[in-house]
Amino acid sequence: MQKINEILSFIKDQYKTDDFIPLHVPRFRGNEKKYLNETIDSTVVSSVGAYVDQFESMMENIVEVEKAVAVVNGTSSLQVALRLAGVKAGDEVITQALTFIATANAIAYNHAEPIFLDVDLDTMGLSPKAVSEFLEEFGELREDGTYNKNTGKKIAACMPMHTFGFPVHLDEMITVCDNWGIPVVEDAAESLGSYYKGKHTGSIGLIGGFSFNGNKTVTCGGGGAIVTNVLELGKHAKYLTTTAKRPHPYEFFHDELGYNFRMPNLNAALACAQLEMLPKFLEEKRNLAQEYAEFFKSINIKFREELPDTKVNYWLMCLELGDKEERDNFLKLTNENSVMTRPIWTLMFRLPMYEHCHRDQQKNAIFLEERIVNIPSSVR
């Protein structure tokens, strides 16, 4: 209890309050109201507008990609990204069970099925070694791709998720997947501002998806983005997410199944103002992470820090506790004392709609599920 009191006192001191401290809240300190008012005055508040175009241009510059496409949320960005990568009904997609539900749902929305493989302890993201071992045991390379020898289904994509903004070992992952002809789709929803070997997450695989939900580093309430360096894929993403309507001054003709996943101009205005603040927010979060790291080292609790060759956005900051009992006690006492903390997600294969899916032993994922907690991570 004494250690918990020290932790509570330290966190409250960081945020300079004795009131309730949430896990992660947005900060609106820039041009948000100005851009929103301009958009309202223009009456162009729906799914086209100057701020949608500006948002896409800003994302292309930040992530350093050929094309970024604004969409309504992060889940839709992943759903469409998988389709663009070639995932079809009846296919399988390799991913991790230690993830937010959107990762698995995006696969299911394509009428495909996830294969849940283990994560690495150091990244908390999909393990290239686990992927390689699975493919060596179950993969069958044919002329048109890799198939699962057990199910007979095509393994159409691999989708690692950068957990809490910590990049997976992407070089190794892409090498493994290239050997088997499997495209890598990055779930970069949580990792805006994170880098792997000098490259922004989301820009390294074939295609990536980001989220701008209300609890992300920058937000527009909802919102997402599809990013790619393959220009034709990016153009097709824009076409599909804007209902696949052929350009025409007044006629409506749609020549393939598209989606009404358009980001409203009103949300894009908010997103542009937030993206302007991204460097400042990242700097402040890294300062907080450094202070956390020094404090938790002094009381012998493991604070998760970035690995060499990576730069982490520290979206949600993590502690690794000794075991499940210690984790549960920590969660109970902090939340009872007005400091919001939470466990990592329930592993996907424990959920009723995914319990039948193919998976490996999940040794590392289970270890982390029992020990990882998030602590308040908002920009101060």
Rank of each mutant, 00 (worst) to 15 (best):
E256Y: 12
E370K: 13
P249D: 13
F166A: 12
Y354R: 05
K238R: 15
T217E: 00
K16F: 06
P279R: 11
E136D: 07
H356N: 14
L23P: 07
P22F: 04
C272P: 01
A268C: 07
W315S: 12
Y35K: 04
P26N: 13
L319N: 08
I207G: 00
L98N: 05
A112L: 06
R286G: 04
S298D: 13
D171A: 12
F28E: 10
Y35I: 07
K302V: 04
P279I: 05
V87W: 03
T334G: 00
T228R: 07
N179R: 14
T39V: 11
S47L: 03
K238E: 14
F295Y: 11
L78K: 08
L126V: 12
N179Q: 14
C177K: 03
F281S: 05
R304M: 10
V72Q: 03
M353Q: 13
E113G: 02
G214P: 01
D41T: 03
N229W: 02
M277L: 15
A102C: 01
I101K: 08
V184L: 08
F252V: 09
G234R: 04
E60Y: 02
P26R: 14
G139S: 04
G165W: 01
S203Q: 04
A365Q: 03
L23S: 06
D91H: 15
Y250Q: 11
R262H: 10
K280R: 13
